[in-house]
Design a protein around this nucleic acid. Structure first.
Lengths: 83, 83, 83, 83
DNA sequence: AACGCATAAGTAAGAC
DNA sequence: GTCTTACTTATGCGTT
């Protein structure tokens, strides 16, 4: 029947998604583990996350962002760290 | 030097996380694709997500949840669907 | 100077947003408090949130959603609670 | 009856939350508006958000954060902008 | 064990 | 109109 075909298709799609979600959850767990290990060695997770975010950005984009932020901060008289 | 050792360790941790994040992002993309395919066949993504959430729950937990929701809705005079 | 004008404008916009954000944060705190009070009286927060979500929906939309979910669950052979 | 008392109490709590949520949503809309206005005057929303986040932090916390980030970036050989 | 935090999912708005 | 991006909510995790 048509209903059965549709039901079977739905089931297949759902099961594919569930499998992928499981793998994704496993990776998330792995990532948490690495952060835990890093913490155990004295590294700061939050800073590591910032680093990772920065490494993901194109250098030019990052530069632009930084420049505009500096501009805005100076306009407001907020001291900008000369890192 | 100590700094070098720490730096190397940090780099290794960061790179491990980045690899895992990449794989995770790839899976997320795969999942999106399956939903898109499902949509193309006339299935509703939102409902599919609900189904997946329900399948993930323990039946007893789901039952409890449903019962409490019904209780609250009835207390407020909101008609409850007798599905 | 032009820069000053722009800087002043920027400052005004930023400060307006900050004021609004503060009020918003205060309301969020109030909401958390009400949930805490409710919990203290034996009510379940999660269920309350579901109720609030349902009350926000148009009855017809809610009906449709429910109907489609039931359809999908039945297609997969998952028993549907006759609430 | 006890049920009635509980039901009335529940209703009151729910309605209080709904009122607070409404006000919160209104503020969120106001904030969006200010950003839209800012954008209309040539300001960049994303950068403004960063500025607001920085202004919310304690200067000492911000300093610490920046210092640690610089440390990590240098350890990885990533050039740090001398803002 | 509960609390707050932080990530992740879902939703809604805005840009192209 | 789609598509991404940002906000909001929710869940789960680590912490106390």
């Amino acid at each position: 029947m048509t209903e059965t075909v549709a039901a079977d298709h739905l089931r297949q799609l759902i099961e594919r998604i569930e499998r992928l979600e499981e793998e994704k959850a496993a990776l998330a767990a792995d990532i948490r583990e690495v952060y835990a290990e890093a913490k155990g060695h004295g590294f700061d997770s939050k800073t590591m996350r910032q680093v990772i975010k920065i490494r993901k950005m194109e250098p030019s984009d990052r530069q632009e962002q930084d420049a505009m932020l500096t501009l805005y901060l100076e306009a407001l008289g907020i001291p900008v760290n000369d890192n």
